[in-house]
């Protein structure tokens, strides 16, 4: 495994000197250093898309905020992951996620095990200032083992990526634009009628909220297992090497 060509860089994150391999992202290095950066669309083992914007950080000398999940470290980089401005933006982003669809924690299968809930608590989001958009959305229970509840979906597209990149089925995709965007099965059909879905359940387990869940779970009963992902990713990397 030892790779002679790996270059090592040093950088500063929140005043802390850290070392990293070139090619690592700010997110990875921060995690190793025990620095928490909130995220929602990122999940270890899948490609990063920089879409939820929760992991935006300040990098000295850069005019714009950069997503920690897609930005690679560089020698001498000075990164700030947490200050008043970033906290304010992150709080508003979480508020917007809640306001976009119908997130009612009290009756959600994922209550207590929900990543959106956890991030909101960590960021100190106690209430939502903006009006809820309350869209009318369908519910798909046509699959024999799983349910899809658009009311809880935050469009992080983890399901789309895990299905494409790990399972190789590409059952999931996204249709529509803006707030009309919606995750879809195959050609926008009921899940139960999908011919590409293998029923592996990876999408359910990477879903951060209660949008994808197993059938037969009552309120607060849906816990997700995500350990398979890093394991599968590492196994594949070794195979290819």
């Amino acid at each position: 495994m030892a790779n002679q060509n790996v270059k090592i860089v040093t950088l500063v994150i929140d005043g802390k000197d850290v070392s990293a391999q070139q090619g690592q992202t700010i997110m990875q290095v921060a995690r190793e250093a025990g620095i928490y950066i909130p995220y929602m669309c990122h999940v270890e083992g899948l490609s990063n898309i920089g879409a939820c914007r929760l992991c935006l950080v300040e990098v000295q000398g850069q005019r714009r905020l950069l997503p920690a999940c897609t930005t690679e470290v560089a020698e001498g980089m000075v990164v700030t992951t947490n200050n008043e401005r970033l906290r304010k933006y992150r709080q508003m982003i979480v508020e917007m996620m809640f306001a976009e669809r119908n997130h009612v924690c009290a009756v959600c299968v994922s209550n207590g095990h929900c990543e959106l809930q956890r991030v909101a608590q960590k960021l100190g989001v106690t209430h939502v200032r903006m009006p809820y958009l309350h869209p009318k959305l369908p519910f798909d229970a046509s699959h024999e083992r799983f349910i899809l509840d658009h009311d809880r979906c935050i469009l992080c597209t983890r399901c789309v990526r895990v299905c494409d990149e790990i399972e190789g089925a590409h059952t999931w995709d996204v249709r529509g634009r803006g707030t009309e965007s919606r995750v879809i099965i195959d050609l926008d059909q009921p899940w139960g009628t999908s011919e590409s879905c293998t029923g592996c359940g990876k999408c359910v387990n990477v879903c951060p909220t209660g949008a994808l869940a197993e059938k037969g779970r009552a309120t607060a009963e849906m816990t997700k297992k995500r350990q398979f992902l890093p394991y599968l990713t590492i196994m594949r990397e070794e195979d290819w090497a």
């Binding site: 898309i49 879409a51 939820c52 982003i93 469009l155 529509g176």
Partner: peptide, 8 residues
């Protein structure tokens, strides 16, 4: 619809 700030 990809990123939250613009979409919502």
């Amino acid at each position: 619809g990809k990123c939250v700030p613009c979409r919502v």
